[in-house]
């Protein structure tokens, strides 16, 4: 079937990531865990669409399944049912190698517990993410320095995580999440381990960085105030998302 409007003669192989397509769309995601006392249903039909550059926050009680949801959205775990589409590409049922490749290129993660590699310096932690995505070290280092400067840690680039405070570690993690110019950042309680003032600083930085780069952000947080800063604030309860 030929379509006159398509530039390369009408053969649509993979749609180019266009600004109209949502970076992420999830339809009717279902997830339950096997436990000794039978299946524990955590997600019971999650439908969510995140547009380019959009900022969505998710709140929910502890144990409501926020981490589980973020892991499924990021391809770290598989849903039992439903569909997941990244940038118009259906990823449900694809193998792990494929998911890992895509993940490294266009997805950034920020975790509550920072998860920096303790043997690597701040700079090396940032460049590691770039190298995993397949960028040569010499290419990625200037970008990493630039990001460290933007989170105010360029002078600490050679320090190990053990020599940095919690807030500083999380700022390194922010730089790492953005090093591959992702289209989406998934942040799981990034301020959960920090005191209020430090947390606010990190949050400002996260919002500023994602906004200026046009990166979409899905933020899971317990903090009411942070959640309300999102144009779209959702709540996860009983396995479903509600506004």
């Amino acid at each position: 079937m030929l379509d006159e409007n398509l530039p390369d003669g009408g053969i649509a192989v993979a749609p180019p990531p266009s600004s109209e397509l949502p970076v992420l769309s999830a339809m009717a995601l279902v997830k339950s865990f096997k436990t000794p006392r039978g299946a524990l249903s955590v997600l019971e039909g999650i439908t969510l669409e995140v547009a380019v550059g959009e900022f969505v926050s998710i709140r929910g009680a502890s144990g409501s399944g926020k981490t589980t949801l973020l892991q499924i959205l990021g391809g770290l775990d598989q849903a039992d049912g439903g569909e997941l589409v990244w940038n118009g590409e259906r990823v449900t049922g694809r193998d792990n190698a494929f998911l890992a490749k895509l993940r490294s290129r266009w997805l950034g993660y920020v975790f509550q517990a920072y998860h920096l590699v303790p043997e690597l310096t701040a700079l090396e932690n940032v460049t590691l993410a770039g190298r995993i995505a397949g960028h040569p070290l010499c290419e990625i280092t200037p970008a990493a320095c630039d990001l460290l400067e933007r989170v105010g840690l360029l002078s600490r680039a050679g320090h190990l995580p053990a020599q940095l405070s919690g807030g500083e570690c999380q700022r390194v993690a922010l730089a790492r999440a953005l090093i591959n110019k992702p289209r989406l950042v998934l942040a799981d309680e990034p301020t959960g381990n920090l005191d209020e003032r430090t947390g606010a600083g990190v949050m400002d930085m996260l919002l500023e960085l994602t906004r200026s780069e046009g990166v979409a952000l899905v933020l899971v947080t317990h903090n009411e105030a942070f959640a309300q800063r999102a144009p779209r604030a959702l709540v996860l309860a009983n396995g479903r998302l509600t506004a």
């Binding site: 792990n96 190698a97 890992a100 490749k101 993940r103 490294s104 997805l107 998860h115 590699v117 995505a133």
Partner: peptide, 16 residues
Amino acid sequence: TREIGLLGALGAQSRQ
């Protein structure tokens, strides 16, 4: 183990 998980989250392949 947690670092292995992190590397996976960053997109590392099993063989790596």
